[in-house]
Amino acid sequence: MDGPTDDVRGVAVTAEDFGLKGPRGWAFRGIRFEAGPGSLIALEGPSGTGRTCLLLALTGRMRATEGHASVGRFLLPKQLAPVRRISGLGPVPGVTDLDPALTVAEHLHERALLERRFGGSLRSLLRPRDERRNEMRMRVDTALAAAGLDTETLPKGRRTSVRDLERLEVLRLSVALALIGRPRVLGVDDTDLKLSDAERAEAWGMLKSLTERGTTVVAVCSEAPEGAVVVRTHTTRPTDATLLNDDDKETADALAEAGRA
């Protein structure tokens, strides 16, 4: 593959009675859907209905406690590690937060170093250093282009700090960082949060363009776009109403663990 989204072989994602129960109740339950490779899967629902937990479960960062799901040829909840290897996370609060003090260039450099050190095969590590650097530079540039982030338009170019980026620019940067790893499944949380109608359309347009190039995208949202495979999260019964909210310590601990995975 020449780039993170060039000829990417996305994978099918399915779930059957998929659920996760924590100490305070069900985070999500009864999730059923089928989505082919290169689909845009929208996890739609109000905040507090387990959308983020479902996203993390489908990308191998949380272990479901009921039912099963498949991501490509891997089965959940048994094969978490293989699913993590083929999936990447864009913005997920509490898991992939960007450091507001670091610049765009510093975040890109850090991710490139990690990918060169841990993301390649042993054979790739034996290639000449200059060849590996040039390839990684191309991968970074390709990821930025795929995410629609033109660093030349930023206030200080790549030296712009994350704290000085607009919400949509942060989303694009987070997606670009994930794409450097060439994931077959990309997870994105809070896709439409705090975006204007025009910005929301741009965000969905960017994610749809990734699916058109082959990547399967799983995105949390409050309102799914047209053409997406919609998976709705909701509370079904009073006995299931004690959900793992973002403020609960158990959820915070689970998110921290997901970040270490």
Rank of each mutant, 00 (worst) to 15 (best):
L179C: 03
A241G: 08
T153F: 00
T235V: 15
D6H: 14
G3K: 09
A261Y: 06
L56T: 09
I86P: 01
R111W: 02
T65K: 13
K208H: 02
N245G: 15
A147M: 08
E110L: 15
T242R: 15
L179S: 04
S161W: 04
E212R: 15
A12N: 05
V217Q: 02
R111P: 00
D197K: 15
S124P: 02
A69W: 00
R29L: 09
G148Y: 00
V162H: 07
D189N: 04
F18V: 03
T215C: 11
F74M: 07
V104H: 05
V140P: 03
T151D: 04
T142W: 05
E110A: 12
E199D: 14
R9V: 11
P37F: 01
L168W: 00
V220S: 00
E115N: 11
E199W: 00
G22E: 10
G60M: 11
R61P: 05
S174T: 12
G30Y: 07
E44I: 12
L243R: 15
S124V: 03
V140S: 08
G90R: 09
G10E: 03
D164H: 12
V230D: 01
S209A: 11
Q79L: 07
A224C: 01
D192C: 07
D189E: 08
F118E: 13
R85E: 14
R139D: 11
G119P: 13
R84I: 13
N134K: 11
D7L: 14
A203Y: 00
E169L: 10
H109N: 15
R29S: 13
T52M: 11
D190K: 01
P77F: 03
T65A: 13
R133W: 10
I31L: 06
V218E: 00
L173G: 04
K21L: 10
G214I: 02
E34L: 06
A42W: 03
G120E: 02
P23F: 02
L177P: 01
Q79R: 13
D190Y: 01
A176E: 06
R184P: 05
A256F: 07
L165V: 04
P155C: 02
R132H: 00
I31T: 03
P4Q: 02
I41S: 06
L126Q: 12
R85I: 09
D248T: 12
V231P: 06
M1W: 10
L89Q: 10
D17T: 12
L165C: 07
G67R: 12
S174F: 07
L58V: 09
R200L: 02
A203I: 08
H107W: 08
R32T: 15
G36T: 09
D6A: 14
G48C: 06
V162S: 12
R167W: 01
L98T: 07
N134P: 00
R158M: 14
E199Y: 07
T52Q: 05
A258D: 03
T233H: 01
F18C: 09
T65G: 10
R132Q: 11
L177M: 08
V230E: 03
A258L: 06
R132P: 04
L243D: 09
L102S: 08
P183H: 04
P155R: 05
G10P: 04
A12L: 03
E131R: 13
P100E: 12
V11L: 13
D97M: 10
N134F: 07
T96L: 09
